[in-house]
Simulated scan of single mutants.
Amino acid sequence: MTEQMYYETFDRMEEFMTLGFEAISVPQEDAKTAAKVLIESDKRGIDSHGVGRFKPIYIDRIEDGILNVETKIDIIRETKTTALLDANDGLGHVASVKAMEIAIAKAKEYGTSMVAVKNSSHYGIAGYYSLMAAKEGMIGITGTNARPSIAPTFGVENMLGTNPLTIGFPTDEDFPFVLDCATSTTQRGKIEHYARIGKELPVGWVIDEQGKDVTDPDIALLGLVKGTCALAPLGGAGEVGAGYKGYGYATVVEVLSSALQGGPFLTQLTGLDENGQKVPYHLGHFFMVVDIDAIVDRAAFEKQAGDIMRTLRASKKAAGEERIYTAGEKEHLAFLERSETGIPINKAVRESLTAVRDKYDVDFKFVWDE
């Protein structure tokens, strides 16, 4: 039987998350920033990183004392084109928006820039920050490390985070090009989504200690925490599907997110101390921006980028396939659809949102309360 879905508008869900963050003592402006990043995921149809993570990732970690409600950002080092920020274990969204704002400003003046962040936390949808640059007519690149999930090629131990390497740039179309994906075959958030809807995982996403596939999402999630399961790198386990490529890119992101700012790495990012007690994750992020106008006429770049996308979509399709997509297109289509229908909220997410509202006495009435 199909689960009943309720639909809430973008504005209402953003308003509730803002109020929820404020209710747990996050300063108002920071609450607005975090809610805006989270809702962008739902707007783009990426249900793994939006309202579904509001409670289990952010509210719960604040309650556990491993995520600070106030995001105090210190500039540790700075040049005309670079900067290193310390987020002091605050909200990753807040620190990352600030970092990308700095990177954009520096690139506007000097052509290119790079900003790194240390002692941060989960920063939500990586594409949000690349979009910030694309909206300014620039190329935006970002990446972050994360708690161990990916096994190296020929290994079974979760060592690397899902470590997205995300790139965005403007085109002359109605939407920018945004490639926002993990360097694993899938990411933990999507497995959480499958668990919420009770759906079995595809073969090739998760392996156990013997290298065998795990398709039960609950077993996979528990195994990822216990270290008895690991995500396959992009391309799959072993070399048959060229999984060494995903493994290599995940390692690049790990280095740029840790060695570049002297932060913890790999299994130091479990969020647990030697006694198994929860501690801040101390994640690292990096943000790179290129001002297109500093190299070539931006309008010409956008036109040629658009031509490339249109040519790709017009190429010969596989039998039975109706269309070819380019990066950012499906998300744009999801945005157009959800602008009309609202965000689909399943039972598990409804329960988590309601729990936050009731616990913190947030004055808000959901559509499912009517």
Rank of each mutant, 00 (worst) to 15 (best):
F364S: 07
V296T: 12
D369T: 09
L353R: 15
A87K: 07
A34S: 04
L91C: 03
G271I: 11
I150H: 03
G211M: 07
A242G: 12
L165P: 11
S25G: 02
H193A: 11
A134T: 04
C181G: 10
G284A: 03
N275W: 03
S130H: 03
Y325P: 08
L266T: 14
H93Q: 02
H122C: 04
I167E: 05
I24K: 06
Y360L: 07
K80E: 14
D86H: 07
A230E: 02
I295R: 12
K359H: 06
Y325E: 06
G262N: 08
T183M: 08
I324V: 14
K98Q: 00
A294Y: 03
K36R: 14
D172F: 04
V51W: 05
P152V: 01
F10Y: 07
K303M: 10
Q304E: 13
F301W: 02
Y281V: 10
K245P: 11
I343H: 10
Q261W: 06
Y247G: 08
Y58F: 08
G20H: 06
A314L: 10
M138W: 02
L269C: 04
T18P: 00
I125P: 00
R357Y: 06
A300P: 07
F287N: 02
A23S: 03
G20W: 02
A31S: 05
E254M: 05
S352I: 11
K303I: 11
A107L: 03
T81S: 14
P264R: 15
L91G: 01
E101M: 01
P148L: 06
Y123C: 00
L67D: 02
E302K: 14
K365H: 14
L91P: 00
L231V: 10
T18N: 01
M159L: 15
S352K: 15
F154A: 07
T185N: 12
L256H: 05
G263K: 12
G204L: 07
E8L: 13
T71H: 07
G204N: 05
L353P: 13
E63R: 12
T81K: 15
E3F: 01
E29Q: 10
F54M: 11
E3Q: 06
I345L: 15
P233I: 12
T311L: 07
K278H: 10
I102F: 00
A146Q: 03
L312M: 07
I139C: 08
R188W: 01
S315E: 03
T251V: 09
I197E: 13
D213F: 03
S96F: 02
K98E: 00
D273K: 15
R77W: 06
N163L: 08
E192P: 08
R350L: 13
G284D: 00
R357I: 09
A232P: 08
V362E: 00
V203A: 13
P27N: 04
S257C: 11
E329H: 14
Q4E: 05
G155Q: 06
D363A: 10
I62Q: 01
R188M: 09
F10M: 09
M288A: 10
D180A: 05
Q304N: 13
T9V: 12
T354L: 14
K365T: 15
G90L: 01
V206H: 02
V252Y: 13
H93L: 01
